[in-house]
Design a binder for these strands. Structure first.
Lengths: 235, 235
DNA sequence: GATATTAAATTGGTATGACCACTTTACTAC
DNA sequence: GTAGTAAAGTGGTCATACCAATTTAATATC
């Protein structure tokens, strides 16, 4: 009968801080890529000392949830960065798998567009629209950065209201960027491509704004199929 | 060519301390149950500050290697089958997150069914059919194992001819099994569920055999939506 | 107005010293 | 030998300071 009872050990402050931050991440309030408040600010917010906050952050880094950069801040990692890490090694050894990764991403982005069309709030639809407008603006100056394109896809995935979808897509997107950022930069800077891409992004945005899931899915599929066909010409 | 070079980040002191203590544990110099030197003593031995030692010990506790007791010292833990990976543990603690992962999986399995319908070879279609037949056979003896169900989904994903899809889905499936195997086993052993599942699996198989991608996708969506609705009743 | 350079501010990393709370050990009285 | 108490040792938390890396803001130049 003694196995029913376990010794009760009071929780350390750092453990409580870990639980709070974990909750914010899994609940979607802290999203992958986001920067969390600085250690000093967090200590003030929580009413604890900076070493206690540091201990909690160290634990969360060990779990793979956070990543600190000296002088630069602390950022939320994608939950699946660790479990999908073998994919990065596979990509390094076999660059031809990139095409397959693009196809995996295609499936997920199409699913995300579908869900976003079903679920996006007005604010989220507005944010998707803003990122397209920002692309249009940068297009007039010769092209846009891969960051703006990421923002567009990120906004769509955020509108699915599925935290895990966001984390998994972030991990895959990170693998993607790591291998082909040069080709993407070319893609986003050549006038003939820019015009096509902008039209495709607008079509996706409009389908989501119209809350038409199947149309959003098809628009996203068309976009990514075109990207898949075009990238080999830039490698 | 940029992918060959990775940013070099200098190691934190606490990381170096972690490596040293891990080496002593895995090398047998520190045995389970043994008490390690006190924080103050360790700091003096290593020529570092006590907070740096504390951070390292905190990390080793998170890894399950050490255990601290206030006033009592820090001890090496037994290296049993150990802790779950952080993400799996979080999924266990958080049913909402598990539900979201199920939805991510849904998107991917539907995509896989679509691609499989487009690409499966005759042998692959045959293997998918065989796994359905094996389910039917085991159903007559009261139910089938989660392994047979895995084989069915694995065969479909194999038929996509996309290695990355296979790896990502396998990883997600592994996280899944770690958390809900008991509920799945119940699902595959109750007569009223078995009949529904078998019908759904047959519909998927038939759509793939007919090489009808959209039909395969819809059949898979219907199957997984049903599973998603039914699992909470078994928890 | 754009760009490059430099300075200032912010951020994480490490350290020192102090104190609190819990546990262990040593000492004393019976 | 045992019980009680004091002292020492240990982990937990904190305040403050300083260093090193990064980011941001200000300034000079074209």
């Amino acid at each position: 009968m003694t196995t029913l009872f376990k010794p009760i050990r009071p929780k350390k402050l750092s453990e409580e801080i870990v639980e709070q931050i974990k909750s914010l991440i899994t609940g979607g309030q802290l999203k992958p890529g986001e920067k969390i408040p600085s250690e000093r600010e967090m200590a003030a917010l929580l009413g604890v000392s900076r070493p206690s906050v540091r201990e909690a952050i160290m634990v969360l880094e060990t779990m793979g949830l956070l990543e600190s950069r000296q002088g630069g801040g602390t950022y939320v990692r994608s939950l699946t960065d660790g479990t999908l890490a073998p994919l990065a090694a596979m990509l390094e050894d076999n660059p031809e798998l990139l095409k397959e990764l693009l196809e995996v991403r295609m499936g997920m982005e199409c699913w995300a567009a579908y869900l976003a069309a079903k679920r996006a709030s007005e604010a989220e639809i507005k944010e998707i629209g803003s990122s397209v407008e920002e692309m249009a603006r940068q297009a007039q100056s010769g092209g846009w950065s891969s960051e703006v394109d990421s923002r567009f896809h990120y906004a769509i995935t955020t509108a699915t209201h599925n935290t895990m979808q966001l984390h998994v897509l972030n991990t895959i997107h990170g693998l993607f960027l790591a291998t082909i950022e040069v080709a993407l930069t070319k893609l986003y800077s050549q006038p003939r491509y820019i015009e096509v891409l902008l039209g495709q992004h607008r079509a996706i945005y409009e389908a989501i704004a119209a809350r038409d899931g199947d149309r959003a899915r098809r628009a996203m599929a068309e976009h990514l199929e075109w990207v898949q066909a075009t990238l080999p010409q830039l490698a």
